[in-house]
Design a binder for these strands. Structure first.
Lengths: 206, 206
DNA sequence: TGCACAATCCCTAAAAAAGGGGATATATGA
DNA sequence: TCATATATCCCCTTTTTTAGGGATTGTGCA
């Protein structure tokens, strides 16, 4: 029996979901909330297996709610529910701690499938959304592959990012300490930064 | 017509895939390679829609191959193929530029589906793998909330991570340089690291 | 009240990193 | 052939960070 809580401000949708879940074998809707504030207060006591969380809620939105709740309800899985496939919302929700994502137009049977999947350690999402998610990974490493830096410089930078000292890098790459320093200076100049940490931030963030 | 290239070192699998793709309507296998080196050299000229890339190749592995090729073949989509669901390989492949992931035991029909999906802008992967992928997003925000460090120490650490110098942090937080140094030492001890970069790595990764 | 802990500051010293100046060899392409 | 880029190394100096040793003020808790 998978216990579920629904957080959704639109009455019709909320009650529709509740009927669907309570009417299906193996699922039990423990409670419904129409706003995030109330859910944040009471959810830790209910501690359900799965929460269907609307993103666009009045007041505190669903993403913030997940951020707050995921810390207290570590084992509860959150599935975000929204009308549009908005990249930024998806990404922020996942970062906040959500495990999955549902469009409101999704067929009832698919909703139950998704709940079960999340409960069993999966993360249901369309392959379109999956692509967007991994796209945001890949962006991070595009500057790493930048034309700016030579192959050797990239190697040095990678080691710098690992926190290795100059002499450790020198040993690892079998080159002299001075060579490492020279490369480092060139890297800093190309990236327009003044320190190791700035360089790492620059290649990590964008 | 979706053009496909296969990179796979095991002869039986390679030829099996080729037969499958050439024998299916709407698909055309332009070329097969048994190693990454040859693929890296010749793929840019073929410029196929989709590449099925084995991860475990002799010499240069599939992940490195994707890393090199994705820069030159921006529009080509890479699907990694492997025997085991290895987290690290998955993650590295996606970072390297792959769009999807297939297990070798996958049924032939599903393979064709995946190729089509990737071609159409999706990213086929099991919901189990999707969970692993988003898990690596989420980890970043957990140690930031660590019990280990005091509020002040977290603030200092955040500034350290931004690459600010001690005196800049001191100015920002309106405290003395020595105070920043003391906090930093305490942070390093608590995190069991010896340098700024190590500390940043520790809180970023886990 | 006394103790632990957090936050603040000070001193000395060594290690590491950054900023500047060069140099050489090798390959690449105009 | 000459210019350019890359990778390698060496010298110098200054700044920054790390590593010890302390000390003082609050605050909260037993």
């Amino acid at each position: 029996m998978i216990t579920v809580v629904i957080v959704e401000d639109v009455k019709e949708i909320r009650e529709g979901l509740q009927l669907l879940i309570d009417g299906s074998e193996g699922f039990s809707c423990r409670q419904v909330f129409s706003n995030a504030e109330e859910a944040i207060e009471k959810l830790p006591d209910i501690y359900p297996d799965v929460v269907l969380m609307d993103i666009n809620l009045p007041g505190i939105n669903g993403i913030e709610a997940v951020r707050k709740l995921k810390n207290q309800c570590r084992k509860t899985q959150f599935i975000m529910s929204t009308v549009y496939e908005d990249d930024e919302s998806i990404f922020e929700s996942l970062k906040a701690g959500a495990s999955g994502y549902l469009l409101k137009k999704t067929a009832p049977v698919k909703i139950l499938d998704s709940i079960t999947e999340v409960y069993n350690g999966g993360s249901p999402m369309s392959s379109q959304i999956a692509r967007k998610v991994i796209a945001s990974f890949q962006q991070k490493n595009t500057i790493d592959e930048s034309e700016l830096l030579t192959q050797r410089e990239k190697e040095i930078l990678k080691s710098l990012a690992k926190g290795l000292r100059y002499k450790e890098i020198a040993a690892e790459l079998n080159i002299g300490l001075e060579t490492v320093r020279t490369h480092t200076r060139n890297i800093y100049e190309k990236l327009q930064v003044q320190s190791r940490t700035e360089a790492i931030n620059k290649i990590m963030r964008q």
